[in-house]
Design a protein around this nucleic acid. Sequence first.
DNA 1: GAGGAATGTGACGAACGTGTGACAGGCTTG
DNA 2: CAAGCCTGTCACACGTTCGTCACATTCCTC
Lengths: 226, 226
Amino acid sequence: MPDTILIVDDEPDVVDLLVFNLQKAGYKTSTAREGRTALQKIRDELPALVVLDLMLPGIEGTDICRQLRADPKTAHIPVIMLTAKAEEVDRIVGLELGADDYITKPFSPRELTLRVKTILRRAAGTSMPSETLKHGDLLVDRAKHDVTFKGKSLDLTATEFKLLATLLERRGRVQTRDMLLQDVWGYEGDVDTRTVDTHVRRLREKLGKAGDWIETVRGVGYRFIE
Amino acid sequence: MPDTILIVDDEPDVVDLLVFNLQKAGYKTSTAREGRTALQKIRDELPALVVLDLMLPGIEGTDICRQLRADPKTAHIPVIMLTAKAEEVDRIVGLELGADDYITKPFSPRELTLRVKTILRRAAGTSMPSETLKHGDLLVDRAKHDVTFKGKSLDLTATEFKLLATLLERRGRVQTRDMLLQDVWGYEGDVDTRTVDTHVRRLREKLGKAGDWIETVRGVGYRFIE
DNA sequence: GAGGAATGTGACGAACGTGTGACAGGCTTG
DNA sequence: CAAGCCTGTCACACGTTCGTCACATTCCTC
């Protein structure tokens, strides 16, 4: 799954140029023309990186940067500032605000792409991607150890959580009871295999309507639908 | 303890300029005039960051960068490239080699200092240094080693403070007892995992109503609410 | 549609995990 | 040296969770 990069600029030409080049480099892109929608998209889509024009109609780029840093959910997202002014003052403001880099217009698309790559590589090492599994409205966050369905948090047991995560992680592929016993329970040989069935039942109950995502493959085991 | 920055350049003027400015910014400095000594100093002193001239007598800056990246002990050290040539080709080479940033000569010392700060900040943690952590009316000041809740100062012991700071810093994410033992206790002696429970209890007691911020995730560990 | 096998369902005792109170050793402080 | 605090450990209590069983239901085969 490719990283998504949010591009915030009010000049369509610039946006198109960036979209074209970044997509060619293998990134997904998302765009916003002004500050308010930019902030909303950042919160909703949680992009891997934001390319942010300093001069925007409405909210200034600097303010966006500040608000982005203030929220723990988005504080870790790297920012590259775009600026038409070459003066150092602007650079300082940008960098001290917590921007990770800046580029002055006019810029070479190739250079920007390289900077994006560098920063994302660096970010990949340090921050944890908050390993999260998703299927429709069902969200499983391993770091938070939290499951939500349609925004509502579900109260799962430790084993139930592990079972769900394992099934979801291998969605589409059938897991035999033995496989599950080994990977979820850590068991080796002969345990009553009905144990798995019971936990699947409890899991389905708690998942409610999403419980149907877990299919039983008769004679084999269980599978999370694709 | 200040971070050490290694400056590698064969022009004494440049080196002096950098030393002066970086020391003023609070960093320790170390210098090398050519490639061989540079590599040795990197291995011996393990600097927090390297400022590296691309053009050096003897070994090229690019080679140093490669060798530095090849050794697991030094692979993580950020590198800022200095180059007299402004051509994009050189920039690409530098960035693709694993340099974290570059600056073209002549450069403003102030700008370099800012870049150093940015990169080190990113390398240090995931996000901002965040000397003070906040959640609602709860304030944790790491510098002052002080915790206040609703304006009232709380009297926490060293371990309790560290535990709270660690949990708060990673709010939302569950910390297993082993994780906490490692990060709060340092994992020196093999302490009983129940020790964590006891300290969480004492912490909750002292936090009063804010003690509910610390959730216990059964079968996994503890978590500060988001 | 009958029979058999596999799975869903409900219930229950045991085991487990966590909260709580207490205590002893070690360290600092006066 | 005594007093006090911090810390790690233990034992006990309590609620939750787990694994198992018996029974009901569904599905497949013939």
